[in-house]
Amino acid sequence: MTQTAEQQKHTSTGQDVLVVDGLVRRFGDLTAVADVSFRIAPGETYGLLGPNGAGKTTTISMIAGLLEADEGSVTVVGQPMGPTKVAPKRHLGLVPQDLAIYPDLSARENLTFFGRLQGLSGGGLRARVAEVLELTGLTDRAKGPTKEFSGGMKRRLNIGIGLLHQPTLLILDEPTVGVDPQSRNAILESVENLSGEGMAVLYTTHYMEEAERLCDRIGIIDSGTLQAEGTRDELIRLIGGVDNIQLTAAGDTEAAAEALRALPPVARVDADRGRLQLTVHDAPTAVAQIVTTATASGLQLSDVQISRPNLESVFLHLTGKALRD
């Protein structure tokens, strides 16, 4: 794994809410998670960014004590975690990827039920349920069965249950999958507010924009292995300050790609159905030469876009594939 200097410094603080050390999980011959290690400090939002099947949910299942690790350990607030451990789970709030609410119960009943299991009771529980209903915008629909809720309302309640007991560590497993843009934005705003309240958040996603917007640090995971971690800027620096140029054109893109690869500023070219994706050094300077070469190769350009590097570029650089592959 590639570690930044800041990340190495972070490992020495010794006050982490979550310590994941050398996690391994196998399913038969398949190694779903291979030697994953990272830490999360209080109030920090940590993103696990990777495509579907990268090992994010398996990693989270071990962290939340749903799954036994074959190797390695998980420590939550200094207490070892496992499927039969009770004490560390008191500090944990889990928002599973799939909805985890009872359709025949109302929002209030769902919250009250899970609140009781978390050890809340009496007036404290009632007050907290009211707060979470307010926070999730469900106060007006608190009494109706959740099977009559919209998808966005169910998602908000799903998150609210995880927040109910004000956990030290909140785990959100792809909470915006299948959510409409409006609800998605509301969820992201809620998560931003949580870190402001001092809650540590572990957030998994395959949406680069969400990781960039929410996370203080990001771990890039693929094929069960943590490829790199650090802040957004640290990760982008890993790929050497390159830019992206995208050409949209008609013609023989494969032949043009060969010609473009020979240019000195060009680090990488990927051709795909009338589009050429180039990773280049100093795009503003190189763009003229690239357009000339492409045209000379017989391409009829219809669009040229220059973009600064982002996490998608980092992922492409580290794994050789796009996040949504």
């Binding site: 944990l92 985890a100 009872y102 299991l117 978390q118 050890g119």
Partner: peptide
């Protein structure tokens, strides 16, 4: 099938 089993197993209680 509802997904609530995962949440229940993450609660601070013996599974």
């Amino acid at each position: 099938e509802l997904g609530t089993l995962s949440r229940l197993r993450s609660m601070p209680m013996n599974p």
